[in-house]
Simulated scan of single mutants.
Amino acid sequence: MKKLLVLSLFLGFLTMNAIAQDHKMDKSEWHKKVKDELKLTPEQVTKYDALTTEYDPKFDAIKNNSSLTKDQMKEQKMALMKEKDVKLNEFLTPEQQTKYKEMIEKKMKDMKDHKQ
């Protein structure tokens, strides 16, 4: 029985580690997807990369701030996302803005479905 418990804990740890690694890869994959699907110009890619460089550490700081409650964390992330989106929309075409909004909505829905 103890062996089964230890094995279960070990498998759980491996699963959580794999999920964490997938999450890290998701960020870079997301950035690539945005650039590809929106068909960003080289100038837009430069501006997008600058936004990413500016905002990713801010999102990570919120995520790693253990003094925040889950609701505070969500609130701060949403405020930061809105701020970033305003800057992003400054250099996206109206068509790209629409496509980006659709991508975000799909990503949010997928994340919500994944949590259930």
Rank of each mutant, 00 (worst) to 15 (best):
L38N: 01
L38T: 04
K39F: 14
K39R: 12
L40E: 02
L40M: 07
T41H: 07
T41V: 08
P42M: 12
E43A: 06
E43W: 09
E43C: 03
Q44K: 01
Q44R: 02
Q44M: 04
Q44P: 02
V45L: 08
V45H: 10
V45P: 05
V45Y: 14
V45C: 12
T46G: 01
T46Q: 11
K47D: 06
K47L: 04
K47W: 04
K47T: 06
Y48F: 09
Y48N: 00
Y48H: 02
D49F: 08
A50I: 01
A50T: 03
L51T: 04
L51R: 02
L51A: 01
T52L: 05
T52P: 01
T52R: 12
T53F: 08
T53C: 04
T53K: 09
T53H: 07
E54V: 13
Y55K: 10
Y55F: 14
Y55L: 10
Y55D: 10
D56M: 05
D56V: 04
D56Q: 13
D56R: 11
P57F: 08
P57N: 10
K58W: 06
K58G: 02
K58V: 06
K58I: 10
F59E: 02
A61M: 01
A61C: 07
I62K: 00
I62L: 02
K63Y: 15
K63M: 15
K63H: 14
N64W: 08
N64Y: 10
N64L: 15
N64Q: 14
N64D: 15
N64S: 11
N64T: 15
N65I: 12
N65W: 12
S66M: 15
S66R: 15
S66D: 15
S67F: 06
S67K: 14
S67P: 05
S67I: 12
S67M: 12
L68N: 00
L68F: 03
L68W: 00
L68C: 04
